[in-house]
Amino acid sequence: MADVGIGWWGVPLAVAAGAVRAGTPFLFVSLGELLTEKSGRINLGLEGTLVMGAMSGYGTAYLTGSPWLGVLVAGITGSLFGALHAGLCSLPRVNDIAVGIALMLFGTGLAFYLGKPLIQPQAPTLPALHLGWWSSIAAVRDALKINGLFIVGALLAPAIVWLLRSTRWGMIVRMVGDSADAARAMGYSVDWVRLLATMTGGFLAGIGGSFLSLYYPGSWSEGLSSGQGITAVALVIFARWSPMNCFYASLLFGGAGALGPALQSVGIHSGYYLFNAAPYFLTLFIMVLTSSSEHRLSGAPSELSITR
């Protein structure tokens, strides 16, 4: 193995590379979920949206030969799923959590069904930026292969901060999520705002899915997602509804997921599956640590069904 050349240094390097690579889908899905939750709804269906995005993006890239077109179609598929969620939730006596779970199952099931013919063929994948050209060490060059979507996501996080603070649209989303009555009194349509916010959230989650099938691992299979969609929902709570925290948390979760393979590459094989489970342990651990039976979550939009 090439990594042997730098020995143990390969581990932090691989974790950092993994943070960027595996963190990208977390980043997109969590930013999408953040926007949705800021408007006062939880969309648990993003797992299904992610898988649908992965499938439709892969299929489009395969048929047209353009991976970027695949990303776009994945986003559009995602926003359609978002529209479905928002539309169902705007009906009377419909619970957003239940709809989310239904859409999660529906999305994954539909993607597996429609994606059957896509398992064999190889679609073109997204190009990477080679930022490690200066190094002669293969491991460094490998780790510095950054994908374009990550850079888009990294810029998106501060952009969403600005959007929520300094634009009319962002302020309306926050208002709807924090006090639907106040928003209604000012003449904004709560359902309409939530529809758009959920569709935007779905768009980002769809793009997160296309990253899985078009960059890493870069193929379509039914085991493609290992729960990134649902983990990202938890991640938003952990990030306390702050876009920049979502960014850092995505890197953390991505890095944790790379720990197992990285240790394996330096010859530690025992506990491989245990290390692979690191992101899930981390989720559980962080949730236990940051939750309290006595205190309310700070920073949560007041209209969220979990905080009311």
């Binding site: 300094s166 634009t167 302020m171 006090s179 106040a182 009194a185 000012m186 939009p301």
Partner: peptide, 27 residues
């Protein structure tokens, strides 16, 4: 029952209450 948005600042509430909020707000 107060109709101010609880997690927004007073200034943010005042600006959002206006009928003509600009697309990009110059704080």
């Amino acid at each position: 029952h107060f109709t101010l948005v609880p997690h927004m600042t007073v200034l943010e509430n005042m600006v959002m209450a206006r009928a003509d909020v600009p697309p990009v707000i110059n704080w």
